[in-house]
Design a protein around this nucleic acid. Structure first.
Length: 278
DNA sequence: AGTTGTCAAGCTAGT
DNA sequence: ACTAGCTTGACAACT
C-alpha cells in the first residue's frame, strides 16, 4: 500500500499549484508559472520519496487555464523535457500520482456548454499525465455530477456522455461516490454499464450509503479495477466535528484510523489521505 | 508591509 | 436570496 496526500506540501515552501488571475494572463506569465509549478512538483516528489510517501495527487492548477480558450501555448511540447523527467522519477521509484478535476467538471450536465468545457478539462488532465508517459494507473477521479431534478436521467446522461469521451480520457477516468447525491451503489451501477473503475471514498460512504459495511464496500469496489488500472485507490477522511456535514477534518483521529485499517485488512489498495494538515 | 475583496467554470442543501 | 462546501487558498489591489 502506498499512502498519499493531495496537492499541497505544507513542509516545503514550494507549491505546484500556483496560478494567477485570468485578467493578468500573458504567455510570459503562463510560462513562468508552469515552470515554477513543475519545478515544485519535482521537489515535492523528492520530499515524498525521502519520507516514504509513494502517492500524490497533482493539483489541476499545475497548468493554469489549460482548458481555457485563452491558453494557446503547446505546453506539452514546451515543457517536454521537464514532464518526461518527472514521469521517469515517478516510475523509477514505483510511485503513483492521480488528479481530481474540480467541481465544475460535469459530464452529466444537461447544459451543452458545461459538457463541452468539461470534456476539454478532462482532455487536459489526460494530456498532462500522458505527457509524463505514465501508465494508466495514474488516474483522474471525478464525481458523477448533478441530479438536475431527475436522478435516473442524470445517470443515463453520464453513461451516454462517458461513452463518447476520447480513449485518452477513458483510459484514466474513475468515478468516486459522493456524500450527498450519488452513493457507492449508484457508482457500481454505472460501472456495470460502462466498466469504469469505482474509487471508494470512505468518508462519503459514511455520509451516504445503502447499508453496506466497510468490508462490503471494499469487496464491491475492488473487482471494478482491472489489471491496467493498477490496484484500487481509496480516499480517506473524517467529518470535522461541529462543522457542517461534509467538512473535512484538520487532523487524523488515530482510533478511527485503526478501525478503518482493521476493516480494510486483506485488501490491496493505495490510500489518499484527504486530511487538511496532511 | 499588511489586509482584504475577489477569483474561469456548477450544483446542492442549509440558513 | 444567499452562501458554504467541494481535492487544495492565494492573487492582487488596496490601505
Amino acid at each position: 500500500m502506498r499512502i498519499g496526500y493531495p496537492c499541497i506540501n505544507r513542509s516545503l515552501d514550494c507549491t505546484s499549484s500556483s496560478t494567477f488571475r485570468l485578467a493578468s494572463y500573458s504567455e510570459h506569465r503562463f510560462h513562468q508559472t508552469v515552470q515554477n509549478n513543475l519545478h515544485c512538483l519535482k521537489q515535492i516528489l523528492h520530499y515524498n520519496l525521502e519520507h516514504g510517501v509513494g502517492f500524490f495527487r497533482i493539483s489541476s492548477d499545475i497548468i493554469p487555464f489549460a482548458s481555457h480558450p485563452v491558453c494557446s501555448v503547446e505546453w506539452g511540447r514546451t515543457f517536454r523535457k521537464e514532464l518526461l523527467s518527472i514521469g521517469d522519477f515517478v516510475m523509477n521509484h514505483d510511485m503513483r500520482v492521480s488528479m481530481h478535476p474540480d467541481q465544475f467538471t460535469l459530464i452529466n450536465s444537461p447544459n451543452e456548454n458545461v459538457l463541452t468545457q468539461s470534456c476539454s478539462e478532462l482532455s487536459y488532465h489526460a494530456h498532462f499525465l500522458d505527457s509524463m508517459k505514465l501508465g494508466y494507473d495514474a488516474k483522474i477521479q471525478i464525481h458523477i455530477g448533478g441530479v438536475y431534478g431527475d436522478k435516473k436521467a442524470a445517470i443515463s446522461r453520464f453513461i451516454k456522455n462517458y461513452n463518447h469521451l476520447p480513449p485518452a480520457v477513458k483510459n484514466r477516468l474513475v468515478i468516486e461516490n459522493d456524500d450527498r447525491l450519488f452513493s457507492l451503489k449508484d457508482c457500481l451501477d454505472i460501472h456495470q454499464a460502462t466498466g469504469i473503475p469505482v474509487l471508494l471514498d470512505i468518508f462519503h460512504h459514511q455520509c451516504l450509503n445503502n447499508g453496506e459495511t466497510l468490508r462490503e464496500a471494499f469487496s464491491l469496489t475492488a473487482p471494478t479495477w482491472q489489471e491496467q488500472d493498477g490496484i484500487p485507490i481509496v480516499d480517506y477522511s473524517l467529518q470535522q466535528e461541529g462543522a457542517r456535514k461534509g467538512k473535512h477534518r484538520e487532523s487524523i483521529n488515530s482510533n478511527d484510523f485503526k478501525n478503518f485499517l482493521n476493516a480494510a485488512c486483506g485488501f490491496s489498495f493505495d490510500l489518499m489521505l484527504e486530511i487538511k494538515d496532511k
